[in-house]
Nucleic acid binder design. Structure first.
Lengths: 343, 343
DNA sequence: CTCACAGCTGCAAGCGCTTCCAAAGTACAC
DNA sequence: GTGTACTTTGGAAGCGCTTGCAGCTGTGAG
């Protein structure tokens, strides 16, 4: 394996100059730069990552901690992060902590803290106070996406606000019998957010003077299949049926639609459904939703981090609200005429 | 930040002994080990990743190259890989090359080759001859999953065989009007496998003496939404309708089911559908499928790699066929009675 | 009691770069 | 021609560990 020394010899330059030429830092005459690059190319030489990092103290590597890359939101974010990082010449070290607190703990201790990363992006993690302290203690830029991370910069959407907007959309259409499917991920403690969306729903309902019926408040695990099961209960029960469902995620909205179809309910004539996310499948189901550009959030997170890294600015924690977009499709409309089906 | 030196002083040992104690290599008396560990813990010291790597020549990091973490198969594999690597104390550097050949090229050149990884796992990548050579040239263990990678070890399922099995399942039920939805990902050159599954389908059909109708051979991009669009064409056309569809992936099978429902077709009475994958959503749709344990494949890949790394065995390229499992649910049954709906 | 051997330990030489520093070269104005 | 202010260059000191080597200690056998 050729080393920088070999390149230097071949180019007739000193090691120092080759280093500067190849890394682009410092002043090097165009001629020297050219010669260094040529020599490096001829030898098939690339700088050793570890040696560079050790000597310079920089890693060009950011750690991304996610609950599970297998889920829509997280994999979308990771795609955005990945593309942006790669463009910037950074590596992405992925920590998929789907296996619970233990895994999370070992990741924090054995990996992140081992100075391997210049920065970390934490997606929707629910960390303990101690864990947050650990993270902050390594004094590296951190940004949290979609989850509270006291002390660090965060990117989030206005969960409460969009939940209100979604609910208001239904209310304005004339619905009063509105169910809400909230996210519940007790089986996996890493999730976040149910609260705020539910809060927005309740706020909008209260503002409109419409009662929230407890039996129409259901929950699911954010998956299509989980929502499907919950929706079957909601819609198939002996009690009165809602005329609209606001699901806290598109996947849950889709699960709801599937369940509704099972009962012969037509969307949107018999039941309106609205979600949140901007999931690719939304189009197939004509799903009205509020699009949060997950990839965009990932990309933004990287830009924030890199800005922080370049300036070495400890710039304090900023809290960025990411914009969302209301997408009206065909899954929502006015409620059934007054002769609505009520068993 | 404390260094190993500080630990050594505090423990009253030499740097060398502390290093051996903490890394677990070499002979250290239990007493020294204990003291080193205590001192390290007290100081909150962790070995520097880069320094260790530089000095030892090992990285404890494997690169994973995938076309897109946003897709079911890939994210499943990554989860399996991630969990297994984390257990083994390795880092996972993710290269999500969804943006085409350019991105792939830069990943190979600027990242993987920079000696940052001890090994690489390539998932379903369609690499050029030159790219494969590059990969092999770095002399690190490589394993390919679900894609041919001449010269490297691979893990794959018997695509042709399971496609035959799926087709035979339909044939045995009495179907003769069988459509096949094959995978086509021209928009993204990184994918793999359409060929072999389609081959298995044709083989089974030929063996049964059943004609393959060209108009019943459709393709989609492996997504639910793509398959939905294709299936609408297939099922809504003016021509005769098949009584069964074998889709090359579960997501495409689900897209097909959704399209069928749009036309009022009942599954499986009017149309049988079978897929391949073992997708979580399969249960919701009662989808008959052939389960390839994607997580398991990822885990196996890691085990193969680590085995190779430990032994420094150049062990030669092995080709492992990963077992699959036929899962019969409710989306397949006998074809409609002879008075089948034919327009 | 001595010797061979094995287990421990510490010294010091790197691993392959980056970057400080000082020296040398270059350009321009006076 | 001289002085000033840059730009460009090379020497060399690390970055924070790992590990070969040699010395030291303790053990059991002879």
């Amino acid at each position: 394996m050729p080393g920088i020394k070999d390149v230097a010899e071949r180019a007739g330059l000193s090691i120092a100059t080759v280093s500067r030429a190849l890394s682009g830092k410092g002043n090097v005459s165009p001629r020297s730069r050219e010669r260094a690059q040529t020599a490096a190319a001829e030898l098939g030489f690339v700088l050793s990552y570890h040696a560079s990092s050790l000597a310079s103290g920089r890693n060009h590597n950011v750690g991304v901690v996610v609950p599970s890359v297998h889920r829509w939101f997280f994999s979308s974010v990771v795609e955005g992060v990945s593309a942006t990082l790669l463009d910037a010449g950074y590596d992405l070290t992925l920590y998929n902590v789907s296996e619970g607190p233990d895994r999370r703990h070992s990741v924090l201790n054995d990996f992140l803290l081992r100075k391997r990363v210049d920065a970390v992006i934490a997606v929707s993690l629910e960390l303990s106070e101690a864990e947050i302290q650990q993270l902050l203690a390594i004094h590296r830029p951190i940004v949290g996406i979609g989850g509270p991370l006291p002390g660090a910069s965060t990117i989030r959407i206005n969960d409460s606000g969009i939940a209100e907007a979604a609910t208001n959309h239904l209310l304005r259409l004339g619905h009063t019998r509105i169910a809400h499917m909230t996210g519940d991920a007790s089986y996996q403690q890493d999730f976040r957010l149910p609260g705020t969306r539910q809060g927005g729903f309740e706020k909008a309902m209260a503002a409109a003077g419409v009662a929230v019926r407890p039996e129409w408040q259901v929950s699911a695990d954010f998956t299509i299949q989980g929502a499907y099961a919950s929706a079957r209960q909601l819609l198939g029960g002996a009690s009165e049926r809602p005329t609209a469902v606001f699901a806290a995620s598109d996947e849950m909205a889709i699960g709801t639609i599937l369940a509704a179809r099972d009962f012969g309910l037509r969307i949107p004539y018999d039941l309106s459904v609205i979600g949140i996310d901007g999931h690719e499948l939304g189009e197939v189901f004509g799903l009205t939703t509020i699009d949060q550009d997950a990839r965009g959030q990932g990309a933004l997170a990287v830009r924030l981090l890199l800005a922080g890294l370049e300036k070495a600015a400890d710039g304090g924690a900023t809290d960025t609200e990411f914009p969302t977009k209301f997408v009206v499709r065909s899954s929502t409309s006015v409620p059934p005429a007054d002769t609505a089906p009520v068993r």
